[in-house]
Simulated scan of single mutants.
Amino acid sequence: MMRRSLLLLGLVLLALRVQAEPVKEIVIEPVGDELKFKVTEFTVAPGETVRLIFKNTAKVMPHNVVVLNTDSPSVVNRVGTAAISAQDYVPNDPAILAYTKVAQPGETVEVTFKAPEKPGRYRYVCTFPGHYTLMQGVMVVSGKATS
């Protein structure tokens, strides 16, 4: 009886994993020790699960990736400015959709989040002090919803 229950549980777990929603992986790195991301634009579907992996290949500079729920330059400025005095350089701001922790040189960090349902352009920046003015990219939400 126990063996049968374990077999049934295993089949249920396997079925759940097969039905699991696909995840879109995005890998972002800096351009050496410049204040630039190599990937400055990527596209996802509305509501898609995104696994954003940040590989800090820089030799000396720490960086992070903060995804905003807007493309507004004034919001980018507000978040970037507030980050200077925020814990871990990520302010408590309603415009932040997702973020990685600050990665030291050679470190890889990641975050998994749901893309917005509304198609549009969503800015991502590094909020390590002063980096946000140059270190930016855009997540484009386009196409049909995945859910």
Rank of each mutant, 00 (worst) to 15 (best):
M1K: 05
R4E: 14
S5F: 03
S5G: 15
S5Y: 03
S5E: 11
L6T: 06
L8T: 08
L9M: 05
L13G: 13
L13K: 04
R17N: 09
V18E: 04
Q19S: 15
Q19I: 02
A20L: 02
E21A: 04
K24Y: 11
I28L: 06
P30R: 02
V31K: 10
G32M: 02
L35W: 03
V39E: 04
T40C: 02
E41C: 09
F42T: 10
V44R: 11
G47P: 02
G47V: 09
E48Y: 00
R51T: 00
I53Q: 04
I53W: 12
I53F: 06
F54E: 08
K55I: 12
K55G: 15
K55H: 13
N56P: 03
K59F: 02
K59T: 05
V60H: 01
M61Y: 14
P62K: 14
H63D: 13
N64E: 10
V65D: 07
V65M: 11
V66H: 04
N69M: 08
N69G: 04
P73G: 03
P73R: 15
S74A: 13
S74C: 12
S74Q: 10
V76N: 06
N77D: 10
N77L: 07
G80P: 04
A82R: 10
A82S: 14
I84D: 12
S85T: 11
D88R: 06
D88P: 01
Y89E: 01
V90I: 03
N92L: 14
N92D: 15
N92T: 11
D93M: 05
P94D: 07
L97N: 04
A98E: 02
A98C: 09
Q104Y: 09
P105G: 07
P105F: 00
P105Q: 06
P105N: 06
E107K: 12
E107C: 12
T112M: 07
T112N: 08
K114P: 05
K114Y: 05
A115M: 05
E117C: 04
K118A: 15
P119T: 03
P119D: 00
P119E: 00
G120R: 06
G120S: 11
R121K: 11
R121D: 02
Y122Q: 10
V125P: 01
V125M: 07
V125R: 14
C126S: 14
C126L: 09
F128N: 07
G130I: 02
G130S: 06
Y132F: 13
T133S: 11
M135K: 12
M135W: 10
G137L: 07
V138W: 04
V140M: 08
V141H: 03
S142G: 00
K144P: 00
S147E: 08
